[in-house]
């Protein structure tokens, strides 16, 4: 990481300041909440699912710009995808979306959205590959 100029590149700031898909869904088919106790980030993701495909997705919660931007980008990315496709998402997919290098501490912020989404889709707290 060569500095906050890179970490806070325009697209991340744009997503953090004006998050897409921010809010909650009524009668969600899947809802899951998780937190990053280290920094106090909290994230909830709601899904409407039909025929195994994500019809609508929203996130809510509080957090730093990295966790908020990652949630915003991820929600945009997975709308319309099947749950099977979501299960195949990896941390590298999220890091690629963010387009930045993250140190071990901020990595948790960047991956909170994926962790929450996958746990919701799998319906469990630990999803396969979590330790990777």
């Amino acid at each position: 990481m060569s500095g906050s100029e890179d970490l806070f590149r325009e697209e991340i700031l744009e997503h953090a300041k004006h998050p897409r898909r921010h809010g909650t869904l009524s009668d969600p088919d899947i809802t899951f909440e998780d937190s990053n106790p280290l920094c106090g980030d909290r994230l909830r993701i709601d899904l409407h699912v039909k025929d195994g495909r994500i019809r609508d997705i929203c996130f809510s919660g509080v957090g730093c710009s990295i966790s908020q931007a990652a949630a915003s980008m991820l929600c945009e990315e997975v709308e319309g995808k099947t749950l099977e496709e979501v299960k195949r998402l990896t941390r590298d997919d999220v890091l690629e979306m963010l387009g930045i290098e993250l140190g071990p501490v901020r990595l948790k912020c960047g991956l909170l959205a994926l962790k929450t989404l996958k746990a919701g889709v799998y319906g469990i707290h630990q999803w396969p590959g979590e330790d990777e």
Binding site: S4, F8, L38, G40, V62, C64, S65, I66
Partner: peptide, 20 residues
């Protein structure tokens, strides 16, 4: 968010704690 504050400060070489 304090984490974001700490990240910008880190860029200035300033090490502060952010969190609870």
């Amino acid at each position: 968010h304090p984490h974001d504050v700490a990240t910008v400060l880190d860029d200035e070489g300033v090490a502060v704690r952010a969190g609870h």
